[in-house]
């Protein structure tokens, strides 16, 4: 392989330093304009119970409906089972993964297919509310949705880490919201 070919494989020079959303502001996908460092966020907003959560579009590969869910005894508490997704097995992540045992995820629920570092996970999404660009409140820094409801912005790498290490996810999200 020639040097030029090697260099063409390199990440673009303006890629952000840490793990970047897969579809984040890379040149190939000009349609997604995710402004890193600015206040505007392109997200999918979904609610579980009375809480609204948001995930930046760059992390989301697909929105899909869960097929038959298989429970996994002894899995980390945030894992609500596994599901067959086009022939590969996906873990289903639930942000309510608190100390008590989760409600089993079931067929027909909505889920977001998230990808971090090539690792794909289905995130249980409850009701999907909207796809929008959200602006952070300039005073508090909190993210508000179109109905001015505060939204908890989830950070998928953080979610993945927490899930694998059996840390409580919901508390994480709330904490980052309160900052």
């Amino acid at each position: 392989m020639s040097l030029a070919a090697w260099q063409s494989l390199l990440p673009p020079a303006n890629a952000s330093i840490r793990r970047t959303p897969a579809l984040a502001p890379s040149k190939q996908t000009g349609t997604v304009s995710l402004a890193v460092g600015k206040k505007m966020k392109n997200v999918i907003v979904f609610s579980i119970g009375s809480t609204a959560y948001a995930v930046e579009l760059g992390w989301i590969r697909e929105v899909f409906t869960l097929a038959h869910v298989t429970p996994v005894p002894h899995a980390p508490t945030a894992i609500a089972g596994v599901v067959n997704f086009r022939g590969s097995i996906l873990s289903i992540l639930d942000i309510r993964g608190l100390s008590s045992r989760l409600a089993q995820a079931s067929k027909g629920e909505s889920a977001l297919l998230l990808e971090v570092d090539r690792c794909q996970v289905a995130l249980r999404a409850g009701t999907i509310d909207e796809v929008s660009s959200l602006l952070a409140d300039s005073r508090t820094g909190a993210l508000l949705d179109s109905r001015h409801r505060p939204v908890v912005l989830l950070d998928p790498p953080e979610l993945f880490d927490a899930a694998m290490n059996n840390r409580s996810l919901a508390l994480q999200a709330v904490a980052s919201h309160e900052e």
């Binding site: 899995a75 097995i89 996906l90 873990s91 694998m164």
Partner: peptide
């Protein structure tokens, strides 16, 4: 099939 990194442990 592989169960994926979340359950690999």
């Amino acid at each position: 099939k592989n169960l994926g990194p979340m359950l690999a442990g």
